[in-house]
């Protein structure tokens, strides 16, 4: 009779930690997978070799295993690997009550090895096929050069992931030093976003990207927040009020950040009135979405150092807001 099918564990159904695998997990998992192809056996193996000779008594091998906390020792004769003796072999001999026999009497002669130039994924496959706990690593001349265990692989991948993380840090560091590293009389980083009218679902995406860019550039958190709020209100205005949307532009210079929008209508008939707190032309529908309370322009003005608003009915509106960056913090001097 067949054994009953093993029920799937929660982990198998839901992925790690009993929950659904998120995009982030998927990204991490695929990075580990990628690394197991990229990493080579010689990069993760241990090269501190403990070997035995064929005529060494088993008791001595047991001592090597105990001292170095290893569970398998390759057997070498005249620089050539002739077998491997595992803890299991030793236990087996112990069971027979004889540890005085030489290694050659109970070693495994058919040794499964792996080449040092193979990728780690090959080692993983070999482990799972043979159910072995360790593999001797040989070079192209079949000479023993190291040992590899599953623990070595885990460690190797973790170290590589750590390096990835450091690389991201380096990228962030480089971005924050952009203005130092690129020498010119006037360096300006320009980010442009096309904003569609009435596209409420994507409202704020541009501002979100702008905020992230400023953080990467190493801008002061207070300044980043002020820019984020001002630019988000401006983005929502393009979505709510314009006929055909408009362009949102961010210009970053070491000493100031300029945010601007241009659209082609309908235009604001009375700018003074539009700047009054509470004045709004928004529909009740827009109000029910949490906007159009007549605070947007007031809000923007409060967040920035200078704001210019020009508008012609039937032609369109141009808004320019600037935030001055004290001590040129964007050059990284005070945040490096």
């Amino acid at each position: 009779m067949c054994p009953p099918t093993k029920p799937q564990t929660e982990q198998e159904i839901y992925g790690r930690r009993g929950r659904t695998i998120t995009d982030r997990d998927a990204h991490d998992i695929s990075r580990v997978e990628e690394l197991s192809y990229d990493l080579k056996v010689h990069e993760v193996m241990s090269t501190e070799l403990r070997t035995a000779s064929p005529d060494m008594p088993l008791s001595e091998v047991l001592e090597i295993m105990r001292i170095h906390r290893i569970s398998g020792v390759p057997v070498v004769e005249n620089d050539e690997m002739v077998g491997i003796v595992s803890l299991e072999d030793v236990v087996h001999a112990l069971y027979k009550g004889n540890l005085d026999v030489p290694v050659s009497a109970c070693m495994t002669r058919e040794v499964v090895t792996i080449a040092n130039y193979e990728s780690v994924v090959k080692a993983i496959e070999t482990f799972s096929l043979t159910r072995l706990g360790r593999l001797p690593v040989v070079d192209e001349n079949n000479k023993l050069v190291g040992m590899i265990t599953k623990g070595d692989i885990t460690r190797g991948i973790l170290i590589a992931l750590q390096k990835d993380y450091q690389d991201e840090e380096v990228r962030r560091y480089r971005a924050s030093h952009l203005f130092e590293d690129i020498i010119s009389d006037r360096t300006t980083l320009v980010l442009r976003y096309n904003i569609k009218a009435r596209d409420f679902n994507h409202g704020g995406n541009a501002s979100s990207n702008i905020k992230r860019a400023l953080m990467r550039l190493g801008a002061d958190p207070q300044i980043t927040r002020r820019c984020g709020i001002a630019v988000y209100e401006a983005e929502m205005n393009l979505i709510i009020h314009t006929n055909n949307g408009g362009i949102l532009k961010l210009e970053v210079e070491p000493h100031r950040i300029t945010m601007s929008t241009v659209d082609d209508g309908p235009g604001i008939p009375d700018i003074t009135q539009a700047l009054q707190p509470g004045y709004s032309t928004a529909t009740e529908q827009v109000r029910e979405m949490g906007f159009g309370a007549g605070m947007g322009l007031v809000n923007m003005k409060r967040c920035v150092d200078t704001m210019e608003l020009e508008s012609t009915v039937g032609k369109g509106t141009k808004l320019v807001m600037r935030i001055l960056v004290p001590n040129e913090t964007l050059t990284g001097h005070s945040h490096g």
Binding site: F200, G204, M289
Partner: peptide, 17 residues
């Protein structure tokens, strides 16, 4: 705390930390 549930709530939260 809000009664609004549209994506703008999240964007607002993000902008205002």
């Amino acid at each position: 705390m809000t009664g609004l549930t549209n994506p703008q709530v999240v964007r607002t939260a993000q902008m205002a930390d």
